[in-house]
Amino acid sequence: MSEPAPAIVVRDLVKRFGAFAAVDHVSLSVARGEVFGFLGPNGCGKSTTIRMICGLLGPTSGSIEVAGLDVRTHAEQIRARVGYVAQFFNLYRDLTVYENLTFYGGVYGVPRAELRSRVEHWCERLDLSRYGRVLSGELSTGVQRSLALAAAVLHEPAVLLLDEPTSGVDPIARRAFFDVIGELADGGTSILVTTHVMDEADRCGRLALMDRGKLVAEGTPSEIRAMGGTDIWQVSADPPSRALTLAEQHPGVDAPALFGTRLQFRVSDGTTAVAVAQWLRDQGVTCDEPRPVRATIEHAFLQLLRRDDGDNE
């Protein structure tokens, strides 16, 4: 099987607002049918990048190609092939679900004969049918996000750009949302999705981590997890907050963090997890034997951002 041309190619993209570089020499490419996860803290430049790919913002320098077309010269043709779900609910609140969908179908030039069946299909698939005649401003956040997705896919775009599509959505709805995203990708749609939610990141084919305008890591979820390091240990401790305070003071303990009553930490500089646990007990904390923990994307995320901090100091 020959490698198909990538759906999105971003090369050396820069966006400055005055002296501030919101996007600082970012390059990435999204293959056809791929779900590409875009991670990073708030304000790291993800949304700015997505808006430049949509043609909503002009880049300061660098190039963007979508479906083989340059954004600078073919903005309108690209817009017809891209679906966009913005970070905030931007549909018309005084229009019903059906009215909104009919409107966006019309604006994207979906043939009238097909529009009706597509609206029905997506309302069915995204569980919107029962809200058809409800004003979209009166819907809950989760339903609004589904509506925004439906509006973005009616014209069957080749590329789907989702900017935190599941913020404010409960875990069950989020899972259903990602099921739909998976189906779209299987159908050949290329998807770029930004998220904060780590289990969503796990469902992406590839991930990029962005921080302060720069890409700091890129790879498959397992490659990213591997960047989280291996020496992660966990103990159940009581009282947990005291255990955390103590662990922070212990030489050779890295990135201690509490998860309920469980304390996780890394060790380096010759110390061992067993030694740390013994020291905690010596200080009057009840704690069990340390067990190794498999690194998650969240570990990698924290680890990579921390390392980046160190570089900048």
């Binding site: 891209v82 549909l91 604006v107």
Partner: peptide, 14 residues
Amino acid sequence: ESGTFELLAASPIG
């Protein structure tokens, strides 16, 4: 002002 312009601008409408 309402933010709906963002989606209009992202659409291919002339």
